[in-house]
Simulated assay, not measured.
Amino acid sequence: MLDLLAAGAAGSAPPAWLQFLPIIGMVAIFWFLIIRPQMKRQKDHQTKIAGVKKGDQVVTAGGILAKVVRVDDDSAEVEIAQGVRVRVVKSTLGDILPPGGKPAND
């Protein structure tokens, strides 16, 4: 008699994979709404910074407007004022300004 009750209770339980469905759904939501867009922005930024060249107007991560004087593999020398040159790590460049804007060192 007890075996029949136990078998009936076990047979009505939902499959085990259904218990993981909400967790899988949350992971998918995080992936498509947070992780994937952030990875795309990071890739776009790395591509943009890899293409920096002499004469570009840039903004550093610290908010300093500068003009690129020389570019190396990992760093760039920028002019932040007339005759004031600073060497910065390329990954700290925040953005490249479009041409035609106000010069950084004027």
Score class of each variant (00 low, 15 high):
P103C: 10
P37D: 11
A28N: 04
A81F: 10
A7Q: 08
P14E: 05
D72I: 06
D44F: 07
G83A: 12
S91P: 00
R87F: 04
A81V: 11
A76C: 08
A104E: 06
G25S: 13
D74Q: 14
W17I: 08
D3V: 09
Q57P: 02
R41S: 12
L4P: 01
Q42Y: 05
K90V: 01
L33P: 00
L2G: 15
I24G: 12
Q46T: 09
Q19N: 15
S75A: 14
I96H: 02
A6P: 02
G51V: 00
T47P: 03
G63I: 03
A76F: 00
K67N: 09
M26H: 09
V58F: 00
L97F: 09
G62P: 01
M26K: 07
D44C: 05
P14V: 07
D73W: 05
P15T: 04
D3C: 07
I34D: 06
V27N: 08
G25R: 04
L4A: 14
L2A: 11
I34R: 06
A7R: 11
S12I: 12
T60G: 04
K40H: 10
G55Y: 04
A76H: 00
V86M: 05
S91W: 04
R85Q: 13
R36G: 01
Q38V: 14
W17H: 12
I35F: 12
Q82N: 13
L5V: 08
V89A: 15
R85L: 07
A81S: 14
S12Q: 14
R36I: 11
F20C: 09
F30C: 07
V52C: 05
P98T: 13
D106G: 13
W17P: 00
I24Q: 12
V88I: 15
R36F: 11
